[in-house]
Design a protein around this nucleic acid. Structure first.
Length: 853
RNA sequence: GGCCGCGUGGUGGAAUUGGUAGACACAGCAGACUUAAAAUCUGCUUCGGUUACCCGAGUGCCGGUUCGAGUCCGGCCGCGGCCACCA
């Protein structure tokens, strides 16, 4: 029995693909293209199972589309800037560049061992000046186009590491690395004006039909459009007014106080005069932004003595508080409090003894809201509201908006939750922001002739803060405008910037301009993008913004970069804990015959925990390298595609892997053992084949149809099942085959091409064993004969009263009367009817008969 | 708290979108081959009623629409995700 040696065979075919350069893509205007892209990896050092799943899915699509005749582009690169490289430098003394490029070399080799149909000539790394230099050019274009701004904004500041932290890096109010209490600081930051596209980014979500509904919804919520109104409350004793934003202007008559954010200019003014107010502001700024902090935080405030007039009823004066629950960067940083109809305002009013005046009641029934113990946020009719009384909430909003406009006291407006994208990071290992600060000229862009602004190599990590800041010379430059001494911007860009345009750079990865228009016009948009759901918001939203910004600067023609998006599930594995509660690696365990588990070394008992997403911290990881080494890439790929639908989480099991390995061996035997016996099909197919021959041909053509449909729909697990089934069918004819041996040959030729996208190495070996000279990677997808996928007979289900009582094998398209007769002739049907007469008979052609008794 | 998903055998999951529930696989059991084991092959495998046949129940729970519901509608229960003091 011949055994398939994956290790040798896989290396051989990987070399053949590479030597024949079949995956190198070239734009061919007029020929249909297909751009397959998986989210590029961060070069952490080793690939993990999540990568294996991601790139296997993409590779199936790429190879399948190629077989379908598309001009496929399938590139790979490295999201290579980021904090871990700097941490490695601090902890191990390795330069970030060295660490990163070493990791890339490792991971490239690992990815290559997977046998991916990738055009490696297009490989890019975002940390290379040949990439980030062009990113600086785009930045300057955006700056010129008014898409970049410099803004004072509140940031999380780690006083020990002396850097800004992203929200995700603040854990329980402390820096994740230093453990220091994080402060809120105002810093001048560069921002992309993503909010300028808020409406468009929201609107266009509707056109992304090949995106998961869930992702679109998440983006919709993230952008968070709300319709409301600005309202101006004149300040008593001053010329100015306090401007607030509300979505409930219908409840304006229920106002009982005003509340300002601690960062509001009026709050600051008050703080300068009153130490108690200043103390309260300081306290608000210290307040954590974590989930628990927010949940526990009480609604608190301080009356700053200011009074405003109600805009509709000037006789009423309202107190102005600073409140800890009002955010500066949403709306205007100030609200009016309507305790009866907002829970936060209700809590606040209760605490400070402010009036609670209901102005909306169900059906206008004032009694129903006379004594509230929580805010009433439901619908109803207006009460206690002068000219609004009796109106619905919606009508009252409209009427109030009209009134505000009349009085010049406010106007309807739309507000978004989306904020501008702060891109400044006080870090070394990122793309330098190409601007210069000059005392006399202000902000001066780096002249394009001076690009790229290259990161200096000679940096030190021996003290906290940004190494670019500590560098003795790098930041000192002459102002390009006036020539006097000036300072280079030492902040670098958020790494999300790097990944916001890489799909465009892949189209012309070596060009001396960022993007070559003819190339992107041919290849973009990405037809199928594949990656984890964790990027559902930020990366995908940023890329959508970037596309629009690049279009505005005439670099690309598309608004939407990703036509189709697929979000894969995670790879999970059981977790193991020792008796003293420490996590254990699967390799540290020994499995006993009785099904128990213990530690291999010590023999101590082990608790098997639930299956969770593979992570180093829980030690429930399986190294893909070891699996590929032992079983081959095809086995790993096949297992990834089997059983679990790709969008769902899957569980990695030893049994599953060995099952995949056994099946690959089975396929190999089946093909190699039958191949010599079966001749190729004659040009003119004979009609006189026997029943077995016809059955095999039908199975072949149905499988071709079903596998194609399954791959089209991303149901790779179903495609796998159909191939299993087909292999069994062929197996059942191994002893006594059809008289026409070309029928088996036709089946094998189809079979190999059907599993080629999934197990490409085995497929090449099988294809050549079958006597084909070319590569199966370049073979056409088999076509099915529509006549052969329709059987002559159909199984008709006969139900009596909705319960299945018989199954009849009848000729296809038999007329209704004959079907009825056959149904009533069935013993089981007669018995089930028990002498009753049929009240009604429903006949669904070629499917079922339901006798209603 | 808001919004959105999902609940199918021992397990992962199928089910032409309202028409045979459990394809395919894993695990398990039985058998063949073998001195034996491994490997391989064959069969069985939702639960209950004595095997075959057949009967009853069955897609989280309760109800509804329909000749017919895993699929549609209403209400519960459970699990998960995203956002979250967003005015």
């Amino acid at each position: 029995m011949s055994r398939y040696n994956a290790k040798e065979v896989e290396a051989k075919w990987q070399q053949a693909w590479s030597e024949q350069r079949i995956f190198e893509a070239r734009a061919e205007p007029g020929r249909p293209k297909y751009y397959v892209l998986e989210m590029f990896p961060y070069p952490s050092g080793r690939i993990h199972m999540g990568h294996v799943r991601n790139y296997t899915l993409g590779d199936v699509v790429a190879r399948y589309r190629r077989a379908r005749g598309f001009n496929v582009i399938h590139p790979m690169g490295w999201d290579a800037f980021g904090l871990p490289a700097e941490n490695a430098a601090r902890d191990k003394g390795i330069h970030p560049a060295r660490w990163t490029y070493d990791n890339i070399a490792n991971m490239r080799a690992e990815l290559k061992s997977m046998g991916l149909a990738i055009d490696w000539t297009r490989e890019i790394a975002t940390c290379h000046p040949g990439y980030y230099g062009h990113q600086q050019k785009l930045f300057l274009d955006f700056l010129k186009a008014g898409l970049v701004d410099r803004k004072e904004s509140a940031v999380n500041w780690d006083p020990v590491d002396q850097t800004v932290l992203a929200n995700e890096q603040v854990i329980d109010g402390r820096g994740w690395r230093s453990g220091a209490l994080v402060e809120k600081r105002k810093l001048a930051q560069w921002v992309f004006r993503i909010t300028a596209f808020a409406d468009e980014l929201l609107e266009s979500l509707g056109e992304l039909e090949r995106w998961p509904a869930r992702v679109r919804l998440m983006q919709e919520n993230w952008i968070g459009r709300s319709e409301g109104a600005y309202v101006n409350f004149p300040i008593v004793g001053r010329d100015s007014a306090l401007k607030i934003f509300t979505t409930r202007h219908d409840t304006l008559f229920g106002a009982s106080f005003m509340a300002l954010s601690a960062d509001h200019p009026l709050a600051r003014q008050a703080g300068e005069k009153d130490p108690a107010v200043a103390d309260f502001i300081a306290e608000c700024q210290r307040m954590g932004t974590t989930e628990e902090a927010i949940e526990k935080a009480e609604k608190r405030g301080i009356d700053i003595g200011l009074r405003v007039r109600h805009p509709i009823d000037p006789s009423r004066e309202l107190p102005v508080y600073i409140a800890n629950f009002v955010l500066m960067d949403y709306g205007t940083g100030a609200i009016f409090g309507c305790p009866a109809h907002d829970q936060r305002d209700f809590d606040f009013a209760t605490r400070y003894g402010l009036p609670i005046v209901p102005v909306v009641a169900p059906k206008g029934d004032a009694a129903a809201v006379a004594s509230l113990d929580t805010a009433y946020v439901g619908d109803g009719l207006l009460i206690n509201s002068g000219f609004l009384d009796g109106m619905t909430v919606a009508d009252a909003k409209a009427a109030m908006a009209e009134k505000l406009r009349e009085l010049d006291a406010g106007e309807p407006t739309v507000t978004f939750r989306l904020r501008d994208w702060g891109l400044s990071r006080q870090r070394y290992w990122g793309c330098p922001i190409p601007v210069i600060h000059c005392e006399s000229c202000g902000i001066v862009p780096v002249p394009e002739s001076d690009l790229p602004v290259i990161l200096p190599d000679d940096v030190t990590f021996d003290r906290p803060g940004n190494p670019l800041d500590h560098h003795p010379t790098w930041k000192h430059v002459d102002c390009p405008s006036c020539g006097r001494a000036a300072r280079r911007e030492t902040d670098t860009m958020d790494t999300f910037v790097d990944s916001s345009w890489y799909f465009a750079r892949f189209c012309s990865p070596r060009a001396d301009v960022p993007i070559v228009r003819e190339e992107v016009d041919y290849w973009l948009p990405v037809d199928q993008y594949i990656g984890g759901i964790e990027h559902a918001i930020l990366h995908l939203l940023y890329s959508r913004f970037y596309s629009r910004a690049m279009k505005q600067c005439d670099w690309v023609s598309v608004d939407e970069p990703f036509d189709g998006l697929f979000t894969q599930g995670m790879v999970c594995h059981e977790t193991y804990k020792s008796a003293d509660g420490a996590w254990l690696y699967p390799e540290e365990l020994e499995w006993l015959e009785d099904g128990g588990v213990r530690e291999r070394q010590s023999g101590k008992p082990v608790t098997v925990g639930r299956s969770e997403s593979m992570s180093k911290s829980k030690k429930n990881v399986i190294d893909p390298g070891a699996i590929i080494d032992k079983y081959g890439a095809d086995t790993a790929r096949w297992f990834m595609l089997s059983d679990s639908p790709p969008e769902r989480d899957m569980e990695w099991t030893d049994a599953g892997v060995s099952g995949a390995w056994r099946f690959s061996q089975r396929l190999w035997r089946q093909i190699v053992e039958s191949a010599p016996r079966h001749a190729a099909a004659p040009d003119a197919l004979p009609n006189d084949i026997d029943d077995a021959g016809l059955a095999v041909r039908r199975a072949t053509h149905k499988t071709i149809r079903d596998v194609g449909a399954a791959i089209d729909g991303f149901h790779f697990n179903v495609a796998v099942a159909r191939i299993h089934e087909f292999s069994r069918v062929l197996g059942s004819y191994e002893g006594e085959g059809p008289s026409a041996d070309w029928v088996i040959r036709e089946a094998l030729d189809a079979l190999v091409r059907l599993f080629a996208p999934m197990m490409p190495h085995l497929a090449e070996e099988a294809w050549s064993t079958l006597g084909h000279s070319g590569l199966v990677a370049e073979a056409e997808w088999p076509a099915f004969d529509p006549q052969l996928v329709v059987d002559d007979t159909v199984t008709i289900v006969v139900q009596v009263g909705g319960k299945t009582r018989a199954k009849l094998e009848l000729a296809r398209d038999l007329d209704e009367r004959a079907v009825r007769e056959a149904a009533f002739a069935s013993d089981n049907v007669v018995r089930a009817m028990a002498g009753k007469t049929a009240r009604k008979v429903i006949v669904v052609p070629n499917r079922l008969v339901n006798v209603v008794v």
